[in-house]
Computed example of a mutant assay.
Amino acid sequence: MKKILTIILCFMPLISVAKATEKQDYKCHVSTSSEDRVIFFNWTASEVDKKMARLTGRKMKDYQKNRKYFIREVNECLPLNATFSTSLGREIDNKTLR
């Protein structure tokens, strides 16, 4: 019994490290050169702030309209199941397809 408990306790830190590096889906409300949008990303939880800061000035492509646009400002980035704090963000999120 002691051996089983010892083995389980030895592997517990490895399980928690794996969860910290798991990727999660995020949605970001951004202001672009053409309009406000909600854009979806798949990031690790530890890198969200860094990735969010790098979005400003990034060139993206709208494949439906076949047009390029620049991200002027990142208003808010949240996990996929969360709701935006602004009414404009919630409105755009409701219209955006997943």
Rank of each mutant, 00 (worst) to 15 (best):
I92V: 15
V38K: 02
I39Q: 10
K61M: 14
A53Q: 10
T56V: 12
N66V: 04
R72E: 15
C77A: 04
P79V: 04
R37D: 10
T32D: 09
V48W: 03
C28Y: 03
N94H: 12
D93W: 14
K19Q: 08
L88W: 04
N75L: 08
C77Y: 03
N81K: 03
D49I: 05
A20C: 01
R54D: 13
E35G: 00
R98L: 11
Y26H: 03
S87E: 14
I4H: 10
G57I: 07
L88I: 11
N81D: 12
C28G: 04
I15A: 15
F11M: 14
K23F: 08
D25Q: 13
I71L: 06
F84H: 01
N94M: 14
F84V: 01
V17C: 10
C28H: 03
L97C: 07
Y69R: 00
V48N: 01
N42K: 15
I92Y: 09
F41T: 08
H29I: 03
V74Q: 02
I39P: 00
S46H: 06
K61C: 09
M12F: 13
A45R: 14
C28P: 02
E22F: 14
A20M: 06
R72Y: 12
K68A: 07
A82G: 01
F84I: 01
T21E: 10
S31E: 15
K2Y: 05
V48H: 02
Q64F: 11
L9H: 04
V74M: 02
R58C: 01
L9R: 02
R98G: 09
T44Y: 00
L5I: 12
R67K: 14
F40L: 06
L80H: 07
C28I: 05
T83E: 13
M12C: 13
T44S: 10
S87T: 12
E91F: 08
I7K: 08
M12H: 02
E47L: 03
Q64Y: 11
K3W: 12
N75A: 07
I39E: 13
A20Q: 05
E22C: 08
A53W: 02
T44N: 08
L9N: 06
D49G: 09
E73P: 00
K23R: 12
M1C: 10
S85D: 09
L55H: 08
K51T: 02
N42E: 12
F84T: 00
D36M: 04
G57V: 05
S34C: 01
R72Q: 14
F70C: 00
S46L: 05
K50Q: 12
W43P: 01
V74C: 04
D62Y: 09
E47F: 04
Y63V: 04
T86G: 02
D62K: 04
K95F: 11
S87L: 10
V17H: 11
I15Q: 08
L88Y: 06
F84N: 01
T56Y: 08
S31H: 10
S33K: 07
A18V: 09
K68T: 10
K27T: 01
D36R: 02
R37P: 07
F84E: 00
R37Y: 15
M52V: 11
F84A: 01
K50F: 05
K23N: 06
E73Q: 09
T86W: 10
Y26A: 03
K59F: 05
